[in-house]
Design a protein around this nucleic acid. Structure first.
Lengths: 186, 186
DNA sequence: GGTCGTCGTTCGTCAAGTCGAACGCCAGTA
DNA sequence: TACTGGCGTTCGACTTGACGAACGACGACC
């Protein structure tokens, strides 16, 4: 499941504080916008209490985030799947070939790009909107992809996912490098 | 946002009943598994009340679904984006070409397949796990894709998304038809 | 018919979430 | 120093959600 093993109340407490500070708002201000008592919000951020749905809903609106984002995993991490890892092939008819390349989730907007990149200086991307996740599947060539602080070298068929709201890079290492970039944002 | 305009309590009420009936459980049984009073669950399914997080959490565990699934959109619909629709191209360096193909979201598992299909009888897929969403981007050729009751003809660059937990088909209309299938599941 | 079991709903009681006010704290300012 | 304004926390009062018992309804079975 999403946040297994974690007490939902602690996750919510952390999310509330994190999202509030991200927005640069004071506890008082958020409580005012949500139309709830600041004492209530104070207790929630402290991990005390057991908020009702209406309270959480008001907070999610005030913080301009999705309801689920309060209870779901706080931060996506970098995930690499090599070409020879995971992929399960199956074909049940000779005229129908299916090759599993990579694995991911629903309920978000996704932009799919085709990349044709030649070797050169690394292309650095400034962080996108918060919550953005980028997935890269290399089709041909070789590239250095991922977070600027910790890029990963990928070959054909390799897959990587990383937070798109952190500075990241794409640098082709061979001529004719091609890849598919999937950018997910909420 | 996810379920804008909809009162979250009504969404939760509907989700609770839907998921409970999907699992084939009685209200009494679900309440027992969740460790809550059946009177509480009765009121929640009626749309009355304002459940606490702990109550909802217990119910999501009892129903073996994700917490967010109780408050998120109940059902994805079929969405088609033609090759000449939406795509925004941008290139800022001559050695870096980016082509926007399609658009989607995060926090789910995604399986990406490469499809090479020859014309023949439609390939019918039995419904997958509940919550599964499939996305298809046709690379070459022409295909009839989508729900079995209402498939859509797609050409190169065309995109379609549809619920994967409903019977669906993929039928190539031209030799050498290639596509990318993205299967998302929770 | 009578009894048992399970279903889902309704009602009164109790505990807990929410509220508003007051508190201490810190910065900026006259 | 005294004052003002905003910050986040703590406290008692009130509202409300969660609980358990009792209810009527339905079906199985003897």
């Amino acid at each position: 499941m999403a946040s297994d093993g974690k007490a939902p109340l602690d996750v919510i407490a952390a999310s509330l504080r994190r999202e509030r500070e991200r927005a640069g708002l004071s506890l008082t201000e958020v409580a005012r916008r949500a139309g709830i008592a600041k004492s209530t919000l104070s207790q929630l951020e402290a991990g005390t209490g057991n908020p009702s749905v209406e309270t959480l809903w008001a907070l999610s609106v005030a913080l301009d985030i999705q309801f689920a984002q309060l209870v779901d995993p706080p931060r996506p991490r970098v995930q690499v799947i090599r070409a020879d890892e995971g992929p399960v092939l199956y074909s049940e008819r000779t005229d129908y070939q299916v090759t599993l390349v990579a694995s991911c989730p629903p309920n978000a907007r996704r932009d799919i790009y085709r990349l044709d990149v030649e070797p050169g200086p690394p292309r650095e991307s400034e962080p996108h909107l918060p919550g953005t996740v980028e997935h890269v599947i290399v089709s041909a060539g070789r590239a250095l992809v991922g977070l600027r602080e910790d890029p990963v070298e990928l070959g054909p068929g390799d897959y990587i996912a990383y937070p798109g709201d952190i500075a990241h890079v794409f640098q082709a290492l061979e001529p004719g490098t091609r890849a598919v970039l999937v950018s997910e944002h909420t």
